[in-house]
Design a protein around this nucleic acid. Structure first.
Lengths: 177, 177
DNA sequence: GCACTCATGTAAGGAGTTACATGATTAG
DNA sequence: CTAATCATGTAACTCCTTACATGAGTGC
C-alpha cells in the first residue's frame, strides 16, 4: 500500500469510478499516469479493497467501475491516524525562474507569461468546479460532518494556490518590464 | 540530463557547493536525497559540466566543492529556452484532508494543527532567509539584471505559499471547532 | 484523412527512496 | 552515552514515465 493506493481509495469512497476517470480526478493531489493506475487497481481488487463492475456502453468502449469494499474503507480510515509524509513538489519552472539572470528579457517574459496562462486556465476550471459544488451542496460545504467537506476544502486550497501563482507571476512581470 | 541535473547546475552558478550543501539548498525547488545527488554530481563532472575542488577541513570531514564550467553554464542557458514540464506536487496530507469525514474531530484537528506547525516553522526560516538577502543586497533584489533576482523571486514565491497554507489551515480549523 | 476523446492494458527504463557503510566532532 | 551535524558514497528496491498496443466514435 503506497500513497497512490490510498489516493485511489479516497476517490472511490465518494463514488465508484473507472481507471480512466480516476486518472483525471487524481490531479487534485497526486499526478499519476494510467499505466500506473490500472495495475494498482488490479492489485487493490486482488487484495479485496475494491470490487469491479463491468459497464457496457454504446458508442464508446466498455469500462470497469471500481467500488470500494468495507475492507478498503477501513484500510483508508486506519491510515488517517498516521502522520502524513512530507509534501513533495517538483517544479522545473522554479529552476528556470531561479536562473532568470542567465537569459534575455524576452525569454524571461515568455516564461512567465506562459506560466500565467497555464494557471489562469487552471483557475477557470477550479472556479467552475467550486461553483458546481456550491450549487449542489450549499451550506453543507461548511459542515465538517458532511462527506463533501473534505473535497471542498481541498479544492479551495488549490483555488487559493492558483490565484497566488497568478498574482506572483504578475508581480514578477511588472518588475521585468 | 534530467531536471535534477539542471537544478544542481542552477545552484552552482551562484557559488561552488559540496553535495551535502546542495542537498539542503535544493529544498526550494527539488527534493532529492544525497544518494541521488552524489552519483549525479560524479556524472556531471565526467561530462565536463563540473570541476571538483577538494577542501581539507579540520574538526569535520573533508569535502568536495563543485565548480560549474563554462560548458555547464552554457548547458543551463540553452535549457532555459525550452518550455518547462508541468509542475508535480505529491502531498499525502491532501489525501487525508480530502478524506476528513472518515475520521473523528480530534484526529482531524491534530492533522491540521501538525500541518500548521510544520508551515509556521518553514515560514520562520524563510522570513529569516529573505531578511538576510534584503540586508545583503537591498534594492538589487528588484533588479532583474542582478544575479540575485532569480533567487529572491523564488523565495518570495515560497514565502507566499507558506503564509497561505497557514491561513488555510486556520480557516479549516475554525470550521471544525 | 487527422487528431482527439474514451477506454484498458503491458514492457522497459529512468527517477527517487530506503537501507547499508563509515567516521570524527559537538552539544545535551 | 546518545543524538545530531558534517561528509560521501553504494546497493537494492519501489515508484513513475514513456513507449508499445488496440480500437470505436466524433469533430474539423
Amino acid at each position: 500500500m503506497n500513497s497512490l493506493a490510498y489516493a485511489l481509495l479516497a476517490m472511490l469512497v465518494r463514488k465508484p469510478c473507472s481507471g480512466y476517470e480516476l486518472a483525471e480526478m487524481l490531479e487534485v493531489f497526486w499526478q499519476a499516469k494510467h499505466s500506473q493506475i490500472y495495475p494498482l487497481l488490479a492489485k487493490l481488487e486482488h487484495d479485496g479493497y475494491l470490487i469491479p463492475e463491468n459497464v457496457e456502453q454504446t458508442g464508446r468502449p466498455n469500462k470497469k467501475l471500481y467500488h470500494i469494499t468495507s475492507e478498503g474503507k477501513e484500510m483508508l480510515r486506519a491510515w488517517m491516524d498516521k502522520a502524513p509524509s512530507v509534501p513533495v513538489s517538483r517544479d522545473e519552472f522554479l529552476i528556470k525562474a531561479y536562473s532568470i539572470s542567465l537569459t534575455d528579457t524576452d525569454t524571461a517574459q515568455r516564461l512567465f507569461e506562459d506560466r500565467l496562462s497555464y494557471y489562469k486556465e487552471k483557475l477557470l476550471r477550479r472556479e467552475k468546479l467550486i461553483q458546481e459544488m456550491e450549487a449542489e451542496y450549499g451550506t453543507d460545504l461548511k459542515d465538517q460532518e458532511h462527506q463533501i467537506f473534505g473535497r471542498y476544502i481541498v479544492h479551495q486550497r488549490k483555488l487559493l494556490m492558483e490565484q497566488q501563482e497568478i498574482a506572483w507571476c504578475r508581480w514578477v512581470l511588472a518588475m521585468i518590464n
